[in-house]
Design a protein around this nucleic acid. Structure first.
Lengths: 143, 143
DNA sequence: TTGCGTGCAAAGGTTTTGCATGGCA
DNA sequence: TGCCATGCAAAACCTTTGCACGCAA
């Protein structure tokens, strides 16, 4: 699928990414993880594999201001093909990924297409913000 | 307001940021600008002042993957509550980043907050998809 | 055997820090 | 005068690239 040869490093990396599905992972986290479980894998390899995965669309790359360096996230392919019609909300505090089906978003999609000529891709678009729980917690603290 | 002494470098930087209000500015752009108009200002100073401005909330810092390095944008305090919030559209084909102010998105934001208890963060959220030009090109090709 | 994958070392780029100097109040 | 701001140089990062070696097919 990804092409090329099958190596231990690739297998281990994919395994970890799948395990962390729905959460963002930094290169440092990956390095630490492999260090902990005693798997030998070079930084260069991690970067190269991640870039390849991003190119093929299996992994999404994004930036978060509090964290130095970029984050990566495994994208579930099954999700990709089955239901095109839902979006994701992602809480920046607890990292929870929320499946999100909502008529209003569909309408926004139509509006943006009609008025701005832009077609929004639901698979890649993630709404970042603060979820219910974390919001409640936040308000509690500030009291 | 910003505290500290008033220096030529600070004044020049603020002036440029205000002039570029509503647009993203990279450190490189700032350096080039001052080089062009013949104002002496060190890179260190630019970073230090920008960080200070971000801390005070006068400037927002963005991380956008298509650009190496971070982006900064002056926030007009007067408009902070009205129409300062904008989103970004990013074309997955041509990589263009589009500033996007739209009533419908604000409404969606309100809806999601009211119905789903989730507060969408405009700074972090990017709509991925296909822009007008690339869409036209796509359709042309498939004809 | 072929050629991709790996990993070291080095380079490239962005941002921060140490420190001496200069400028504001 | 006192202290903050500046800017050079160097360091600290993150990421990519060159190259030789190893390993999958």
């Amino acid at each position: 699928m990804t092409g090329g040869y099958k190596t231990q490093q690739k297998t281990e990396l994919m395994s970890y990414l799948e395990q962390m599905k729905g959460k963002h992972v930094t290169v440092n986290q990956i390095i630490e993880h492999f260090s902990e479980i005693g798997v030998q894998i070079g930084v260069t390899t991690i970067y190269r594999q991640l870039n390849r995965l991003v190119d093929t669309g299996l992994v999404k790359k994004y930036f978060i201001d509090e964290i130095s360096g970029s984050c990566f996230e495994y994208v579930d392919i099954n999700c990709k093909n089955s239901d095109q019609d839902h979006f994701h909300l992602k809480c920046e505090i607890c990292d929870q990924l929320i499946h999100f089906e909502c008529q209003e978003v569909m309408e926004l999609q139509n509006h943006v297409k009609a008025e701005h000529g832009f077609i929004i891709d639901p698979v890649r678009t993630v709404f970042y913000g603060t979820c219910k729980k974390c919001l409640a917690l936040k308000e509690k603290v500030s009291d």
